[in-house]
Design a protein around this nucleic acid. Structure first.
Lengths: 338, 338
DNA sequence: TTGAAAGCGATACCAT
DNA sequence: ATGGTATCGCTTTCAA
């Protein structure tokens, strides 16, 4: 039935072999680095391959080598301004290392089991996950021997390879600076209660404030969006006389700034200091010039990728946490003295 | 050498078959929808599969069905604030349709040949491309029978399936409104000259201005970034007395706003009107409230996905362009009267 | 250096 | 309804 039509697919190694008058094995070898094939035959094969537009079928390769050359990247929500930069860098670095990115985004954290199902089915060589994993899910990576690196997440229950930016170092400078310059009453705009990253940041700031003997700061929460920060600031400022607001991320801090200065006509940092966390691009924009702590995304993604490849090469490598400190970006939205 | 260890991989259909006491074929059928398998055997197989954590190997499936279930998404630069939203939606919709996303980002447009090489090798079912393709590259999709939809790009040389947002409709309203409210001298901040999208927007605005009998507006160019818009505005305002600046995208418009109002102390829109294009989130932030034209990203991504799947189902479907008009977002950075 | 042949893990057709 | 077998396109011994 199937007649001899020009293969729409670009052809197989058999097509190339026939055309070059060699065996299929020869073609295969020719495309594997460090193979032993005579210059003359190689030339003939290359020529035939080019004429046919032949490329080795990665799917077939994966099946036999048990290496798909794909890495899953799982990110909770891309609309968070912080993630596109991370994703861009991860993708870039992975492709430099010769790996392809299989991207998964989560609408709800509950999607993750479906995502992991796909991850298993596609035989990815490894995964970088910026989402919360249960210990059962972590164990699944273990038993299947799939390399895993968590990004800005950790697990207390099971040790696992991870890279994260710790709130403490940079934030301590911020809080201490604000206290030194006279701030006494703080408030915090945190992330959702079930967000591990958000919660860590809240705790870090609160601890530091308590340590200074100041009143426990009120906490309002948002989903890391501008609107959430805007509304949280309104609520907080309606109920409390505040010297400073600490937001769990930059975008909420920007929303809070606008609520404070545009709606409530507060001078920043004169009447109110506001600080964020992340170091996203808009925080630097001149209308905001937010005082914040920048995550060293470049070093963090580099670390994540190299940890991942180490574990792809050597699956028995143990867990390891790599912690980076954020860099203080002074900005002009908080009065810091030292 | 390899002893009978618990397979780290989750096992194959043979393992399941052995455990359930059936043939491997039965296992395969059991995982294909609409198969004919007795309830009793199905139950045994399912149980065995669960015990082993078995999932059908998508790589092996792809090899024989010639359907990888993967769609390539190729995006020029993710750091452009507009793309994360597009990517998030594409990914979401693709996974709803049961497809996986193989993501490629381009540092330079010249990377694209390498990317396409990977695309061929991985036997993706289709591709959504938001980057410039040469006609040779377009032809390659044709001959390999890989479904293709361009996003916000088109090709004059070869007809191809595409979805884009046309500058004209919304922008016409903007320009006409500004002219009606008294703007006479315009300037344009365009994208790089080799950017097709940027260029179309420049041309659209310029045509409209000429049509009104006004002076040909000076053009400055940037790479779509905030900084580029900021600097372009400085250059333009140093050389020309302007009533209005039209930027090819929102982020450059925001940069221009800050240059004008913060550095040059111009009132917006009193002294100078500024408009953008895209409708990204920061344009809505209260410190900017940019007057712009919003691309209907939701409808555009939906259209792109459905066109793509139509073409995956039926590879012989002809080219089709789907054009969407942007929605005018009034904002407060341009005086428009009607 | 080269070719023949055995898998990799599934699907699909064909008997039974 | 179930099992046997060829096949997808490649890599990988193993001989020649």
């Amino acid at each position: 039935m199937r007649e001899r039509e020009i293969p729409r697919t670009g052809g197989t190694s058999y097509d190339v072999a026939r055309r070059a008058g060699v065996s299929q094995s020869a073609v295969s070898r020719c495309f594997r680095p460090g193979a032993s094939v005579a210059p003359a035959t190689r030339a003939r094969i290359i020529e035939a391959a080019n004429e046919l537009g032949y490329r080795p079928n990665a799917i077939a390769q994966s099946l036999i080598t048990r290496r798909s050359g794909m890495v899953a990247v799982i990110i909770s929500n891309l609309t968070n301004l912080y993630y596109p930069e991370v994703l861009a860098q991860l993708t870039q670095r992975l492709s430099e290392r010769g790996a392809r990115v299989l991207l998964f985004t989560l609408q709800a954290e509950s999607d993750i089991d479906n995502v992991l199902d796909q991850v298993w089915r596609y035989q990815v060589d490894g995964a970088i996950v910026a989402a919360r994993l249960s210990s059962a899910q972590l164990r699944a990576f273990e038993t299947r021997g799939t390399a895993l690196v968590l990004y800005n997440r950790e697990s207390d229950e099971a040790p696992v390879a991870s890279v994260s930016c710790e709130f403490a170092a940079g934030e301590t400078l911020l809080v201490d600076g604000m206290i030194a310059s006279g701030c006494r009453s703080f408030a915090i705009i945190g992330g959702p209660e079930d967000s591990t990253v958000g919660e860590a940041r809240v705790k870090g700031a609160r601890d530091r404030i308590s340590l200074a003997g100041l009143a426990v700061p009120p906490i309002d929460r948002g989903d890391f969006s501008y609107e959430a920060g805007y509304e949280a600031a309104h609520r907080l400022l309606a109920q409390h006389k505040l010297d400073a607001i600490i937001a769990a991320n930059d975008v909420m801090a920007l929303g809070a700034m606008d609520a404070a200065r545009l709606d409530l006509k507060l001078a920043i940092p004169g009447d109110l200091s506001i600080v964020g966390f992340d170091g996203v691009a808009p925080a630097k924009w001149r209308s905001y010039n937010l005082t914040t702590v920048r995550q060293p995304v470049g070093r963090m993604t580099a670390a994540a990728i190299s940890m991942l490849f180490e574990r792809i090469e050597n699956p028995d490598l143990g867990p390891e946490r790599r912690l980076f400190s954020g860099d203080l970006i002074p900005g002009s939205t908080a009065s810091l003295s030292r």
